[in-house]
Amino acid sequence: ITFYEDRAFQGRSYETTTDCPNLQPYFSRCNSIRVESGCWMLYERPNYQGQQYLLRRGEYPDYQQWMGLSDSIRSC
C-alpha cells in the first residue's frame, strides 16, 4: 500500500507492506492511496484507534473515494 500526502497520487509518499501502528512520522496528511494487493484496514488515529476504513486492491485518488471523513490516516 502506498500513501500520498496530496490528491491524485501527488506529493510525498510512503509505501509499506506490513502493519504500522503509527504513520505520523512518514506523512502529515493522506489524500490518496494505491493498494497494490489484498485488503487493508486503515485507522484515523495511531495504534489502530478511531474511524476505520477497509480498502481493497485499487486506486483511491481522493480520501472521499474511500468514504474518508478527513485526510487523517494514522495507522494501518
Score class of each variant (00 low, 15 high):
residue 68 G to D: 08
residue 41 M to P: 00
residue 22 N to G: 04
residue 39 C to W: 12
residue 64 Q to F: 06
residue 68 G to E: 08
residue 58 G to T: 06
residue 64 Q to L: 07
residue 65 Q to M: 12
residue 18 T to F: 10
residue 20 C to A: 15
residue 70 S to M: 05
residue 47 N to L: 10
residue 64 Q to C: 14
residue 20 C to R: 14
residue 4 Y to F: 15
residue 7 R to W: 07
residue 34 R to F: 06
residue 65 Q to R: 09
residue 55 L to A: 02
residue 12 R to I: 12
residue 63 Y to C: 08
residue 5 E to T: 04
residue 3 F to C: 02
residue 24 Q to L: 15
residue 37 S to C: 06
residue 23 L to S: 02
residue 24 Q to N: 08
residue 73 I to F: 07
residue 65 Q to P: 12
residue 50 G to H: 01
residue 76 C to D: 01
residue 31 N to L: 03
residue 43 Y to G: 01
residue 12 R to S: 09
residue 66 W to E: 14
residue 52 Q to K: 14
residue 5 E to A: 09
residue 37 S to I: 14
residue 67 M to Y: 07
residue 15 E to W: 14
residue 17 T to I: 03
residue 33 I to S: 01
residue 37 S to V: 14
residue 48 Y to Q: 02
residue 51 Q to G: 08
residue 13 S to L: 04
residue 30 C to A: 14
residue 4 Y to V: 00
residue 59 E to Q: 11
residue 26 Y to G: 13
residue 14 Y to L: 06
residue 65 Q to D: 10
residue 12 R to T: 12
residue 27 F to K: 01
residue 49 Q to F: 03
residue 36 E to D: 12
residue 43 Y to W: 05
residue 74 R to H: 11
residue 23 L to I: 08
residue 75 S to P: 01
residue 16 T to C: 11
residue 75 S to K: 02
residue 48 Y to C: 14
residue 3 F to Q: 00
residue 42 L to T: 06
residue 54 L to Y: 02
residue 71 D to G: 09
residue 15 E to Y: 08
residue 6 D to R: 11
residue 33 I to R: 00
residue 34 R to I: 03
residue 19 D to V: 06
residue 56 R to L: 07
residue 50 G to C: 03
residue 25 P to M: 11
residue 69 L to E: 12
residue 25 P to Y: 03
residue 35 V to P: 00
residue 43 Y to S: 14
residue 66 W to R: 09
residue 29 R to P: 02
residue 37 S to G: 08
residue 56 R to A: 10
residue 61 P to N: 09
residue 50 G to N: 02
residue 19 D to K: 03
residue 56 R to E: 11
residue 75 S to H: 00
residue 4 Y to G: 00
residue 8 A to I: 11
residue 45 R to Q: 05
residue 70 S to K: 06
residue 39 C to D: 05
residue 5 E to C: 01
residue 17 T to K: 05
residue 11 G to L: 02
residue 21 P to F: 04
residue 42 L to D: 01
residue 16 T to F: 14
residue 57 R to P: 10
residue 67 M to Q: 08
residue 55 L to G: 02
residue 21 P to Q: 12
residue 48 Y to M: 15
residue 17 T to P: 10
residue 15 E to R: 09
residue 74 R to M: 11
residue 17 T to S: 08
residue 30 C to L: 03
residue 6 D to K: 14
residue 9 F to L: 15
residue 61 P to G: 09
residue 58 G to N: 12
residue 39 C to E: 08
residue 7 R to V: 13
residue 38 G to Y: 06
residue 13 S to N: 12
residue 47 N to E: 13
residue 49 Q to G: 08
residue 36 E to I: 04
residue 4 Y to M: 02
residue 63 Y to R: 08
residue 17 T to E: 13
residue 22 N to L: 13
residue 14 Y to E: 02
residue 55 L to C: 04
residue 18 T to D: 15
residue 33 I to V: 06
residue 54 L to R: 06
residue 51 Q to R: 11
residue 17 T to C: 13
residue 75 S to M: 01
residue 56 R to Q: 11
residue 22 N to E: 06
residue 21 P to D: 15
residue 13 S to Q: 13
residue 13 S to E: 06
residue 74 R to S: 13
residue 36 E to S: 09
residue 12 R to L: 09
residue 19 D to R: 09
residue 4 Y to L: 00
residue 71 D to F: 05
residue 66 W to N: 14
residue 2 T to P: 01
residue 37 S to K: 14
